[in-house]
């Protein structure tokens, strides 16, 4: 699967100021029964988004039409728990291209990057500014520039860190399997030696 190219994005954003959002919340286990990668967006945050009878939970941010955009801003320790890549698929399928938090769980971060979703780690203060700004103005925008590795809110910017290899993959839409397949001789040489 080739990933989408990512360069810059200017978008309004959806705030989810909850800490430790685990991948069981992002996509509950009972929706992991598919054998394809498509359609998981429907059940993104299923048990927060819908009541047990299937009706929409009006208090949940994805059900508030005033919030929209391709950026999801979550609380500290986003994506903890299960390694299910379905969480990244659901976020991607729903239409988010960037997830912002002050801290990400490792496996989620890898899974997001492998699906062309950019995880952006910001300082706790900046994260707090984002939550406050969007309460004041729901159409508030964020600008994410992958080339420069910056994220900006109201003219205030922070740099973020991304592995140079992964950055190159996202900028060009490359994926890891192509990279590894090109290393076949080295891998076989390693096997022969060990």
């Amino acid at each position: 699967m080739s990933v989408d190219k990512f360069i810059t994005l200017e978008s309004s954003y959806v705030p989810l100021p909850v800490e430790n959002v685990d991948t069981d919340q992002i996509i509950p286990a009972r929706f992991l029964k598919a054998t394809s990668r498509e359609g998981f967006g429907e059940n993104l945050f299923r048990d927060w988004r819908y009541a047990p009878d299937g009706s929409e939970n009006a208090d949940f941010v994805l059900n508030k039409s005033e919030y929209s955009g391709q950026i999801l801003v979550g609380g500290k320790n986003f994506g903890s728990g299960s390694s299910r890549e379905h969480a990244a698929w659901a976020i991607h399928d729903y239409g988010f291209k960037v997830v912002v938090s002050s801290f990400f769980a490792d496996i989620f971060q890898n899974n997001a990057l492998n699906n062309g979703v950019l995880p952006v780690t910001v300082s706790p203060e900046f994260l707090n500014d984002m939550f406050k700004s969007v309460e004041a103005d729901k159409s508030q925008k964020l600008v994410v520039d992958l080339e420069k590795q910056t994220i900006s809110l109201n003219g205030k910017s922070e740099e973020f860190v991304i592995n140079p290899y992964k950055k190159n993959c996202l900028l060009n839409g490359f994926d890891d399997i192509d990279f590894l397949l090109n290393r076949k001789e080295k891998i076989e040489a390693f096997e022969a030696k060990n």
Binding site: A88, N110, N111, D175, L180, K184
Partner: peptide, 19 residues
């Protein structure tokens, strides 16, 4: 633990890319 894209990498090359 790894994600499914990484499962595919290991199936294909017996390797993954890891920092």
């Amino acid at each position: 633990g790894i994600g499914t894209s990484e499962v595919e990498m290991v199936l294909a090359t017996q390797c993954i890319l890891q920092p």
